[in-house]
Design a protein around this nucleic acid. Structure first.
Length: 618
DNA sequence: TTCTCACCTG
DNA sequence: CAGGTGAGAA
């Protein structure tokens, strides 16, 4: 035993430099078969001393690479970002504007009838219809609404029109008859749209609930549904209807406009809700954005009167409209599995990073997210009405979470059933809720900006409540740069994930597993080298063609679509030599012999490229 | 006590 | 890859 040899060997192993000094130092080390198999009670002491000396040296003495020690942060510095549960437990607002203004049941029906009347009036009457024309129309409508009761109605109308005046002029009668005819045609038209249902059965009330947001209902039906609803009720409460008509007859014009506005609001929010629902349910991700856009525009005709072109303004939490910056819809992250996408497993960074070395067209999914996760969300944290981005970004808001779960349930069936996802299902934030139309309606989806390919580009919408396989792939590629990522790095690279304690632990666990595999491979190949009689550490190199690299690449970069940085090869080579030397000197008899190696390797982390931080993992 | 880590196991 | 566990650090 020559302490100087040991000392030199271990010293050199700790002074491994990518610039070649490694070889110079380690070349002096020749594993002594006798020593490696003999009692190591002597050498380990020396080794330990040398290991301690290592710590005294400045980092620059270890590694010339600028990456050395660049990112090492002690695990204790890992910040566990507790769930930022903002607790937006807003109460459910009653969505019906009719019942909000009048608590009485009949009052609500009457108001609705009055609105239907106004709707019909708006459809039949010309824009310039005023004064007595409206008056006449209102009379006629009452007849038209119930054709089968015209015989009962006619005397009433005559009574109303004439008010007991027997000398009604013939011209007025003729005009009235014409109006009757007109409204009968209108009525027929409505019935046709309605599918021919003209029943006065009382079961209709259950048949057409006020907020019938059944997923099966077509948007076209949705648009006519409210009319059916009003109509069916009007047939039951005809007497009340007449009263309302009379009242409405004397209503001032501003009041009618207000009613019309109410109806429009009602219809708008209802139709948009249904459309959003149907889109989320029918959007197959492969669907072109043009289709989506067209669908929205077609299904929600009313929105055109409120919103221009590409924007849909939804009423959120009452009547307050929430206007969001366009950028917010741009930055919503891709979080769902996309089994339909054949290239879903292609990591988005692939071409980007490759492009640094060889020219290649960028991947469609690659785009810069101008939104940084904290910026908008932190500002709006205290708003009582959490707009959707806040919901999306924080994800932990229970109400919004539940709302997203509502339609998320649809996607569960197509989610890849990997453990990665199944874990998120177990997340405490995840609950199973039924698809409540009210929830869907109240999703507070903001100002959905329908832009060409914005939806497809972002591929939906929801902030991650869990890690996906794409996150796993990203993490694996990150391992090429950092073996011991700090929580800060993790947060930066997985900023599309809601960082909870669970998520953080899972990410840490992932890298722990990566390291485990990495070190196992290193030890295995180091032992193989010893068995194979490699006598010089200079004979231990890790190139892209080496078996060790292939094993590692197969594990972390299975698709082989990522250009592994040269630095990783250097680190792998250093690690392999560390293991080789340690095993050679019999250090492996110490139960904690790897710790010294871990200590060295953890200082070799590089900075994660910005591409990892700027892109979503989808 | 809490957290991270390595190790072992399935 | 994840769960469980014990060691060690803060």
């Amino acid at each position: 035993m020559n302490p100087s040899i040991w000392g030199k060997a271990m010293y050199s192993s700790s002074n491994i430099c990518p610039d070649g000094r490694t070889v110079e130092h380690l070349s002096s080390f020749r594993p002594d078969p006798m020593q490696s198999n003999s009692d190591v009670s002597g050498p380990p002491v020396t080794l330990q001393a040398d290991t301690e000396n290592i710590k005294m040296l400045p980092e620059s003495a270890y590694y010339s690479s600028s990456a050395a020690g660049s990112g090492y942060i002690f695990p204790s510095q890992m910040e566990l970002n507790a769930s930022r549960d903002t607790g937006h437990l807003s109460t459910r607002r009653h969505p019906s504007p009719a019942s909000s203004s009048c608590g009485h049941h009949d009052c609500g029906h009457q108001a609705k009838r009055a609105r239907v009347e106004n709707i019909i009036k708006g459809m039949t009457g010309s824009p310039g219809m005023h004064g007595s024309d409206v008056t006449i129309n209102q009379h006629e409508e009452s007849d038209g609404m119930q054709e089968n009761k015209r015989t009962q109605e006619l005397p009433l109308n005559q009574e109303r029109s004439g008010s007991g005046n027997a000398s009604h002029s013939q011209a007025t009668r003729k005009l009235l008859q014409n109006q009757h005819q007109h409204l009968r045609q209108l009525r027929t038209r409505f019935n046709h749209v309605d599918g021919g249902t003209d029943t006065t059965d009382s079961s209709n009330e259950e048949k057409y609930p006020t907020w019938n947001s059944s997923p099966e209902i077509s948007p076209r039906d949705a648009c006519t549904d409210s009319y059916r609803e009003f109509e069916s009720r009007s047939s039951r409460k005809y007497q009340g209807w007449k009263k309302v008509k009379l009242m409405n007859y004397f209503q001032s014009k501003p009041e009618r406009i207000k009613l019309m506005a109410d109806v429009l609001k009602y219809e708008l929010s209802r139709a948009v809700s249904l459309s959003v629902d149907s889109i989320f349910k029918s959007m197959p991700l492969l669907q072109t954005s043009a289709n989506v856009e067209g669908k929205l525009r077609t299904d929600v005709p009313l929105q055109s009167s409120v919103c221009k072109d590409t924007k849909v303004t939804l009423s959120c939490c009452g009547d307050a409209e929430v206007q969001l910056p366009d950028v917010q819809t741009e930055a919503l992250s891709l979080v769902m599995q996309k089994p339909q996408l054949k290239n879903a497993d292609k990591f988005i960074l692939k071409s980007r990073l490759r492009a640094h070395q060889r020219p290649k067209p960028p991947v469609p999914l690659s785009y810069d997210s101008a939104l940084h996760e904290e910026e908008p969300s932190e500002k709006n944290q205290d708003t009582t009405c959490p707009h959707a981005l806040r919901c999306l970004q924080d994800g932990c808001s229970e109400v919004s979470q539940a709302k997203f779960e509502a339609f998320d349930a649809h996607w569960n069936s197509v989610k890849v059933r990997s453990k990665v996802n199944s874990r998120s299902v177990r997340s405490p934030q995840t609950r199973t809720v039924s698809t409540d139309p009210v929830l869907l309606q109240g999703m507070c989806l903001p100002h959905v900006k329908i832009e060409s390919d914005s939806l497809v580009k972002n591929n939906l919408y929801i902030l991650n409540e869990g890690l996906t396989t794409n996150h796993l792939k990203k993490a694996k590629l990150m391992f090429f740069f950092t073996r011991y990522p700090s929580s800060l790095v993790l947060k930066m690279c997985f900023h599309d994930v809601q960082f909870t304690r669970c998520i953080t632990s899972q990410l840490i666990k992932w890298f722990s597993n990566f390291r485990e595999f990495y070190y196992i491979q290193m030890e295995k190949f180091a032992r193989h080298a010893l068995i194979d009689g490699v006598a010089d550490v200079r004979g231990l190199t890790v190139g892209r063609e080496s078996e060790l690299f292939r094993a590692l690449n197969m594990h972390y970069n299975k698709a082989n679509d990522f250009q592994v940085p040269d630095r990783f090869l250097e680190v792998a080579e250093i690690t392999l030599r560390e293991f080789y030397v340690a095993i050679s000197v019999g250090k492996d008899r110490d139960p904690s012999w790897k710790k010294a190696i871990y200590k060295v390797i953890c200082k070799l982390d590089s900075d994660v490229p910005a591409e990892f931080k700027n892109h979503h993992s989808g």
